[in-house]
Design a protein around this nucleic acid. Structure first.
Lengths: 251, 251
DNA sequence: TAGTGGTCTAGACCACAGC
DNA sequence: CTGTGGTCTAGACCACTAC
């Protein structure tokens, strides 16, 4: 109701009607919506107009087109990421992975791993307090939930610091990178996370298999040792539809 | 270079060429990009195809169309919001607004204020531990930076708790709502912020004057008193292009 | 094979911006 | 006023999906 369509373009009215139908429960998550041909007939519009209406729902993240099959209502069951508890020393200090703190009885797996050494990009060198041209250990990973990629992570550590440690290997051992840093007198004591959100690039869309209308959340985390020296920068790219981020803190 | 266009659709190639030109600095923020007519001529394509190419840049938040004028490269200078320091008691305890912690020598102003009493929505009643049908004080505000709205905030407090206090007025006085809560034995001691990101609804697009291709960040903050009783829920909607969120914490 | 969405063309009229 | 983007039509061919 309240279809106060003064002079809304046709495609907006059709889109609004579809959205109302979805919100009213007429179509549930996973259901197929009326296709281009259906809309052309129902509303007496041209193909491009029906298409544009369906495009609105896709760009708002409400629906998802599957080639040759139809347009479907998207599901939305995000993972809860506890920003602070997950990095408490009790997590990795006890040999558990910090990623274990993310799962709500669902499986979060590492899908792709790549470890290499390279010259530090300028912004990383700045943050880590390195000289231009210094090398860093680069650890790239992709995380998959229920078969769908949800997170890309690229971690940078000063090569001079971590040379010869298990951090240079694909499997960093119990407690992960942070437990290993603790063993070489570089135990993380303080973290800073910076968050942004924007629409994905084509590369990100491919790597995370993102539906149209899904933003990404960028997290840049810097880990500092007790002496305030930065020891790691971790740049993450999250499928925004797959995550809720939580931060708990005192006044 | 590296235009490895195997079988990319025309509009994607045109879009990629434009993106390269933007990234290489050929077009700076605020510059006008080649219009539909220019692209039709340059690439020998139909109007809808040129249009689709420009649509890619807009939906990725790179460019912004202005009716009757052209398509322009968007500017991007986000505001830094320090999630934890800004809520430290030292902020509001000293009579300063928590919003003062957001500005980087730029003006953040309240644009619209509305204070009312209403029945608590179900999710709010749940979070605040109220019975269904209980009333809440609802404080709605819009914040503007450099003339552009960047943040919508709706704060809910139990009506029984704040009745008769300055929290029910538009101007809550020095230190704001939290300072007033402290005066009635409900001083916030702990906070939880939950973050999501998604594409905006039509209402949000209008209220925040969002360009196409701009996501919103949703923050739901719950404030707890010393005795762990929830005293406020604040739902915020941020223009994602206007904000960087920062959280600092110890291991 | 029939139907779906993805891409593309070649036109059209409109509202709005800037000169 | 001219040019811009916004909307819309009526066709077309393709690749893919499901049956």
């Amino acid at each position: 109701m309240a279809d106060s369509d003064d002079k809304l373009p046709k495609y907006r009215r059709i889109a609004d009607a579809l959205k109302d139908a979805v919100n009213s429960g007429q179509y549930a998550a996973g259901d197929r919506l009326p296709g281009e041909n259906d809309l052309m007939e129902t509303y007496g519009v041209a193909r491009m107009t029906a298409r544009q209406a369906l495009g609105v729902l896709q760009s708002e993240g409400i629906a998802e087109a599957r080639k040759g099959a139809g347009v479907f209502v998207r599901d939305f069951r995000p993972l809860r990421r506890r920003g602070i508890q997950r990095l408490a020393e009790a997590q990795w200090g006890s040999g558990r992975s910090i990623w274990a703190a993310d799962i709500d009885n669902r499986e979060l797996e590492v899908d792709q791993v790549d470890v290499s050494v390279a010259v530090a990009p300028e912004r990383i060198a700045d943050t880590l307090g390195l000289e231009p041209g210094d090398s860093v250990c680069v650890r790239q990973r992709r995380f998959v939930l229920d078969g769908k990629p949800v997170l890309l992570s690229t971690s940078y550590l000063p090569a001079a610091l971590v040379a010869g440690t298990r951090i240079m290997q694909e499997d960093t051992g119990p407690g992960g990178t942070y437990a290993r840093l603790a063993e070489i007198d570089a135990k993380p004591a303080h973290f800073r996370e910076e968050l942004r959100s924007r629409m994905p690039t084509a590369d990100e869309t491919a790597a995370l298999q993102l539906a149209a209308g899904t933003p990404v959340i960028l997290i840049c985390r810097t880990a500092f040792a007790q002496d305030h020296r930065p020891v790691e920068v971790n740049e993450m790219t999250l499928d925004a539809a797959s995550y809720v981020l939580e931060y708990d803190f005192d006044a």
